[in-house]
Amino acid sequence: MISSTETIISVSNLCYRNPSSWFTRMFRSDFILKNITFSLQDGESLAIIGEEKSGKSELISAIAGLITPTKGLILYNGQTYENNRQMRAQNFRMIFQDQETALNRKLRIIDILQIPLLINTSMTESERKERIYDTLNLVDLPNSIAKRYPQELSYGQMKRISFARALILNPKVILANKSISSFDPNLRAHICNMMLRLQKERRISTIITTSDLEIARKISDKLLVLCKGEVVEFGDTRKILNNPQNEITQRLLRNYNNEYRYKFKPEKE
């Protein structure tokens, strides 16, 4: 029986350094990620924040399986997925930062969404179409969009298509690398709402890297603060943001709530 407190991802002693020649390795052995250990329960969502060059993108691509870690283990439901490509492709889906280059301009939307199904499943054509239309419904897009090309869509619609491509295989984990910044507040709120709905209705864990702490506060349960490749703080998002213990987290918060930023004042009526 699956209980609600089952560990879905556990990362232990993860290390990563850039692949380099033995010569450079002799003189400097600077790891990008050093001894990262954390675990996520089923249905929880994570936000990774940190300063510049702290290894956020490397950590999220290591979890997605895009880069091979030098040392350490990433366990999904208690088993590794390094050699199990099928399982990795079905359960870990990545959403990339730039929505324009993420989609192939020569394919129609229906073909873009079909490719993961053709590779990973053995569905008939009608089943595939049904799945595609269900997924388009889930991300608030009309069915008529399936016949169009990516360059005919707006930015928000492109982003939603990349969400749909991530969701089409019913994954357990969605990874998004800096994908909500660079939008106007309306679109940001819309994508936040969509992520929240996925978490609540489908129990999908979302792992995001972001530099907007308000988005991290809005859509994540756990927060991971990185500094120079090491975990500085890990725990409940609200606890950390309301009461930061570490010096680096305090500095991040101070820089974020700077003098130019809008500060929310609750209405007294």
Partner: peptide, 27 residues
């Protein structure tokens, strides 16, 4: 008004993990 409402809702620390009212339709 809709942009400012979304901005205020996003930066409100009290309402965590709640849906934000957004503008419907497209540009």
């Amino acid at each position: 008004a809709s942009l400012i409402r979304s901005m205020m809702a996003l930066s409100d620390p009290g309402q965590n993990k709640k849906f934000i009212p957004v503008l419907k339709g497209k540009h």
